[in-house]
Design a protein around this nucleic acid. Structure first.
Length: 517
RNA sequence: GGCAGCGUAGCUCAGGGGUAGAGCAGAGGAAUCAUAAUCCUUUGGUCGGGGGUUCAAAUCCCUCCGCUGCUACCA
């Protein structure tokens, strides 16, 4: 039976427009999803938008529209960037959709049924400006007799609110045991330490409903409450699979998820609350949560006031779709924070894709076109060097890449790829087929065959990162679309001599270095 | 303030107790099939500052500086 692979991005909060960070996480997931599909897995890839909560409500009011209209508009922007970045998601979930609301309520009921929800009161020093409650020792009384939050200086008033609570305090030990038994659950290591120390510090019960506004999912049986946005939001990973609906076949098939990608700022929600909710509802936990870092731009934090916020469209305009995908994953190890420098990105694309891989393909195809009648040449006996190169690109490379993908090391996978490209270019120079043309045409045909076969294997392997370009290259080798998976890397699916090839065209045009954002 | 991470060649980043690594950028050479691309050689760092442990520290410990995230109901 085919192995399933369920992968999710976070659902993006619609209080702002999509930016480079959203693109980054989404692209990383897409690359993983494509890799797994090519590797024979039955993949389900989910992304979506998180649309409830007071911030969205306020943003809608500020814009003078009702919240549903507002979220429709912003969610659409997030949906629009998916085809623009060539994202292969199988589904898009919105937390305002009927299917999600229903599923979230079913989850609530499942947790309630287990005895983990109780009604209580929430009280504390509330700062309207911060939308946050503070402990008494987090506030001070100033000369004017009023109370202010120490951290923000916002004025606080005593508030009491009826609220439902989740018995998070009861789950600390079971969470720690879960982390212990599943050491790969949280990555990278820094996030894991943070989460474990947080849990060890002791967990308090979690308020999971609100009565102060109504832009949310009604609590089953007590509709003056709406569900806490994180309980609402996290449940998307199962509601999108039909959890709690009449047809939960996808849920049966794909849950638990193999991989939740998150930004490093939301690891706590995914690594503490989410498993606790699921365990309480007696649902299996996801296998892995991996947090990616944040980008800064040319050494500076991205911010609206600095005017250096980079949007997905900016990246596409500058680097093309495949170029944007490539430069985001090439240098920075997934999980680390990074500094995005345009000059480096251009250099990277030019030297790796244009000069390295693109030129390898072009010189190979061009020689075949001119010297072999535009057909795949007929190879003779293979030398040791021929065989070594073919083994590297057909077998060893994908083996190495697979290992790196297991640990989300996209940049390391690309390093292996570029190493193979370099070896192929070395091979061209050593064999010098342009000399063989006069001295030994049969040997030239063999060398060009080995090279064409090398380009085929490399193009197949690089598909997850630069799908459109890789496909163009495979078109030029007359590889049919159903013969492009990793299973086709082997000798049995090698190029057939005599196959007519189209006129070669450059696939990775060089970019000009340009300064400033 | 507390917790965690980071600070390594001009740039982007690996590494992590035993004579400092990669790619790009720079320099020199070879070749000319190719998107003037390729291939070879090569310059370059007292691994943020200071202190300590050790025969030996970029790597462990302490401290200081700078940056980042979290600090509970706020994505």
């Amino acid at each position: 039976m085919t192995k399933t692979f369920y992968i999710t991005t976070p659902i993006y909060y619609v209080n702002g427009d999509p930016h480079m960070g959203h693109a980054y996480t989404t692209i990383a997931c897409d690359v993983m999803a494509r890799f797994k599909r090519l590797d024979g897995y039955d993949v389900h890839f989910l992304t979506g938008t998180d649309e409830h909560g007071i911030k969205v409500l306020q943003a809608a009011r500020d814009g003078g529209v009702d919240p549903q209209t507002f979220t429709d508009q912003v969610s659409q922007k997030f949906q629009d960037i998916l085809p623009a970045l060539n994202i292969s998601n199988d589904d898009f979930i919105r937390t305002t959709s009927a299917r999600h609301k229903k599923g979230a309520q079913v989850l609530w009921e499942a947790i309630a049924k287990s005895g983990n929800i109780y009604k209580g009161g929430y009280s504390g020093w509330y700062a309207v400006r911060d939308e946050a409650y503070y402990q008494e020792d987090e506030t001070e009384i100033r000369a004017d007799g009023k109370r202010y939050a120490l951290s923000s200086g916002a004025e606080c008033t005593w508030m009491e609110e009826e609220s439902y609570f989740f018995k998070l305090s009861a789950w600390g030990d079971r969470l720690l045991e879960f982390y212990d038994k599943n050491p790969d659950f949280i990555g990278p290591e820094s996030s894991k330490k943070e989460v474990i120390s947080f849990v060890k510090g002791g967990l308090k019960d979690l308020s999971i409903s609100r009565t102060t506004f109504d832009w949310g999912i009604p609590v089953p049986g007590d509709e003056k409450h709406v569900m806490y946005v994180w309980l609402d939001a996290l449940s998307n990973y199962i509601t999108a699979l039909g959890y709690g609906s009449d047809d939960d076949s996808l849920f049966q098939k794909f849950w638990p998820a193999q991989f939740h990608a998150v930004g490093k700022e939301i690891t706590r929600f995914h690594c503490i609350y989410w498993p606790a909710f699921l365990m309480a509802a007696n649902i299996a936990n996801p296998e892995r949560v991996f947090a990616n870092g944040w980008w800064i731009m040319e050494g500076q934090k991205m911010s609206k006031s600095l005017g250096n916020v980079v949007t997905p469209e900016d990246l596409i305009n500058r680097y093309g779709v495949d170029g944007a995908r490539y430069v985001l994953l090439r240098d920075l190890p997934f999980g680390n924070d990074g500094n995005f420098v345009h000059e480096n990105a251009v250099n990277r694309l030019n030297s790796d894709m244009s000069n390295g891989f693109g030129n390898l393909a072009q010189r190979t195809l061009s020689m075949i076109n001119k010297n072999c009648g535009g057909q795949v040449p007929t190879p003779g006996d293979l030398s040791i060097e021929d065989q070594a190169l073919l083994i590297e690109v057909r077998e060893e490379l994908i083996h190495e890449m697979r290992k790196e993908f297991e640990n989300f090391r996209f940049s390391a996978a690309l390093e292996h790829f570029m190493k193979a490209v370099n070896h192929a270019n070395m091979y061209v120079d050593r064999q010098a087929p342009w000399k063989l043309k006069k001295e030994n045409p049969d040997r030239m045909a063999t060398v060009l065959y080995v090279l064409a076969e090398t380009v085929r294997a490399l193009a197949i392997a690089i598909q997850p990162f630069v799908p459109a370009s890789a496909n163009k290259m495979l078109d030029q080798l007359a590889i049919t679309e159903d013969a492009r998976t990793f299973a086709h890397l082997d000798k049995a699916h090698a190029l057939k001599a005599g196959t007519a090839l189209p006129e070669p065209q450059g696939v990775f045009p060089r970019l000009e270095v340009q300064k400033a954002a």
